[in-house]
Computed example of a mutant assay.
Amino acid sequence: MLGLIKLYTVPKYRRMMKAVAKDAKQRGMGTFDFMETLNQEDMARYLTPPLKPTDVARFGLPADDDITEERLLPEPLRVARDAYRAGEWQPGADLLAGIGTDWDRRSTAVSVLSKAAADDDTALKAWRAARPDDADAAIVHADSLTEVAWQIRSSHRASNVSAEQFAGFRRVLEQADEACQLAADLAPEDPTPWEKRCSIAMGRQYSRDDFREVWAGVMERDPLHVAAHGRAMQYWCAKWFGSHELMWEFAEEGAAKHPKLAWLPLAAAFEMWAADVKNPWQDKRVEQALDTLLPWLDGDGRDAPEARDSRAFAARALVELNRGKEAIEQFRHLGAHADGFVWSYHAFGSVHEFRKIRSRACRLAK
């Protein structure tokens, strides 16, 4: 949700809040209680004036109406996920076996299959019954429990989460932690269980020392693990268990390791923006990160599993730095999918935010 200061001081948001408050009063509800009942499309309708249309076709970009928040997946992973949803576990098992020790791709595949299993565990149960000691099935099970735990908690503010929901959240997260340990025992060389535990650690409110133990487990197995760095940076954010200083320190250390981690300072600037810090994108570390990240995306990183999220962060940063033409190039790669983390913080949804920033890029490029 947008910060309260922004909601009541920026004119367009102030108008929006007046309209929301009026409708809430008619329903006998408080403004923020009413807002909790609205989905992203409902909220977007309150924003006046609406986004002005931009001639995106001029830049070879998909039309606004074609933008979707659905995740764009490589064909083999999409096929495996769809089979999994249909109750067939073998394609997913074959995919993970074929990925082998490509840890970044393995993490992505496990996440996709675990989300499907959290919605329907038919295929997972059959897989585990057929192969009870399969490390691949074990880690999908562990990560699916994490997904279920967050579904129980919901994405609402803590004040709107019931005691029963919190109890269920904690109970299932504890099960997920134990399942990750089993997966780690079955595949001692695999960093994936340790990476997934980084997320569990936030939900279970691990102390900094306890979190560092989990982090060490990842680093011993893959010191360049992309998803793990993303999860860990969230832990070190001020909104969780760190601070702006600790977050930036972690981001800079990660970016110095390899170009595929150069998106971390961009993510740090994004978190600062979300915390209403003034001009975070103008930090010199943002431009330094872009200088490293953009050549990598044009070269060795073009087809990397983390490339889409990296491009989304790059597109946002480039727009904020008034580098519209370069941002347009990243949007061409992103196509019609607003599936990057950087679009997800907006009250009106990923599609709205993607279109808004893309429209700014087009105006700059003119």
Rank of each mutant, 00 (worst) to 15 (best):
P265V: 12
D303L: 12
I5F: 13
D210A: 15
P223L: 09
A109W: 05
W296G: 04
A251Q: 06
P259C: 11
G168I: 10
W236R: 03
A347F: 08
L96K: 06
R71K: 09
R71P: 00
E88S: 15
P265Q: 14
P188N: 09
D209F: 05
D65T: 14
A44W: 05
A251V: 10
S359V: 06
R171T: 14
A365Y: 00
E287D: 14
L264V: 07
K52P: 02
H333T: 07
G217E: 00
L7T: 05
A307L: 04
Q175A: 15
K125Y: 01
Y46G: 04
D177I: 00
D102G: 07
R302K: 15
R131H: 14
L73E: 10
V20D: 02
P223I: 09
A184V: 02
A137C: 07
F270A: 09
R212Q: 13
S162C: 02
A312G: 13
A44T: 05
M17K: 02
T31V: 14
A80M: 04
R58H: 12
G335P: 03
Y46S: 06
H333S: 14
A183D: 00
P50N: 07
D276N: 14
A117F: 07
A24I: 07
F354P: 00
D185R: 12
A158D: 12
V286C: 12
A267Q: 11
A130S: 13
D276I: 07
S155L: 08
R311C: 05
G299S: 14
S344E: 11
R302E: 15
A83I: 10
S162H: 06
I5A: 12
K356H: 14
H337P: 00
M247V: 06
K260D: 11
Y13G: 01
S344W: 09
K260E: 13
A274L: 14
V351S: 07
L77H: 07
R170W: 06
N279G: 03
A184K: 02
L73G: 09
A138G: 03
E326S: 03
F32V: 10
S207Y: 03
W89V: 08
A123V: 03
A238H: 09
K52T: 15
E88F: 06
L173G: 01
R15S: 13
L290I: 05
R27N: 13
F331A: 01
